[in-house]
Design a protein around this nucleic acid. Structure first.
Lengths: 191, 191
DNA sequence: CCAATTCTGGAACGAATAGTCAATAACGGA
DNA sequence: TCCGTTATTGACTATTCGTTCCAGAATTGG
């Protein structure tokens, strides 16, 4: 039987959220261990003991961030009875949060598909989100709000690419009106 | 009068292209001075003598990359008599080169709008390209290929955001068919 | 030829990096 | 209460970072 020992004094998810904040702003290479321990408010050894090394911490941060973001997208998608309204709500949320950098976009920019263990984190989230969006596109087609000839999967990929595009535009300093315009144009392609 | 001294043994633009290759793949923080001198094939002191420090080298690399990319976009835009064909050609070129990371997208992801001297590099290129695209959109509207109600400037921003989206999708591992689909959907929004 | 100037390559610098060690503290089970 | 185990803490290590110094080589004007 396993003996119980001293429990950790910090909440792993809360400190992970702090790490997410650092990685969002500075990326993996730009984030130092010192910045991380400062932001997370724990000792160095606690960090390495709880999360492994910097790369594993980064993977954990990306995974947690992606799960939360994925859930938020899906919640927005289902926030309205009419599918097209849900899709619009998803894009609206992206516009409203586009002042903060996206860790998903950042990690793809920084590492592409080169790191297999990072791709393992992205892939399932991408599939889940694409599936959820494609489903809602199908709904919108049945409700007469989206062109029936379109392939829902292709439209889903298009919307995900536009989410990335909106976030990059926001990161580059685009104002709210411009981002609203981007979302409107993306929706236009579905008609 | 100024005395002539020993001339440089390397071509500044050629070595800058090598540096661009390193920065595209690894970003600013992920590129070490060692990687840069190895790829550029020059000595350390030559690098610092010719380009200043690492940050100035990065700015020079982004500037040169952006100028080349901007020119290539505009050339594609004008490669066909019909404006909409030129716009499609521009997106096709983006799709065809989407296997290589984009230094413009990478630098925005890494630094956002925080570094003013980097924004100074991006801004004029962005204006130039947006203007060129908007002009071509106006042509397409007059030729009956784009909806007359659309604001050419807004459409230009949309296309630029989609170029970024296509490149991120490519960096994330999307295959050619998926990227073609993204370009087709983007064009769809102009009708 | 000389003098002036700049380039080149390598060694060297201090600072910062990711990661570890050893000592101490806190807990659950016996 | 004492033990086994784990968390915490802060000093520590070894490496790598960006950058600079130095000595020699190359080039042109005088």
């Amino acid at each position: 039987m396993r003996l119980m020992a001293r429990p950790r004094e910090f909440d792993a998810d809360a400190t992970l959220d702090s790490a997410i904040g650092v990685f969002r702003e500075h990326g993996f290479e730009g984030a130092s261990a010192q910045m991380l321990v400062d932001a997370m408010g724990i000792g160095r050894q606690s960090l390495y003991g709880a999360f492994g090394d910097k790369w594993q911490l980064y993977r954990s941060a990306v995974r947690r961030y992606a799960m939360g973001e994925c859930a938020a997208h899906i919640e927005a998608l289902r926030s309205a009875p009419r599918a097209m309204d849900g899709i619009a709500a998803m894009l609206r949320r992206v516009v409203e949060t586009a002042d903060q950098p996206c860790l998903g976009v950042g990690s793809i920019c920084e590492f592409g598909a080169a790191r297999p263990d990072l791709a393992e984190v992205h892939a399932p989230m991408g599939r889940t989100l694409r599936g959820a969006i494609a489903n809602r596109i199908g709904d919108a087609q049945r409700e007469g709000d989206a062109a029936p000839a379109l392939d829902p999967e292709a439209v889903a990929e298009f919307l995900m690419a536009n989410i990335a595009g909106i976030r990059i535009a926001g990161r580059g300093g685009a104002d709210r009106a411009a981002l609203d315009g981007l979302a409107a144009m993306a929706l236009r392609a579905l008609r």
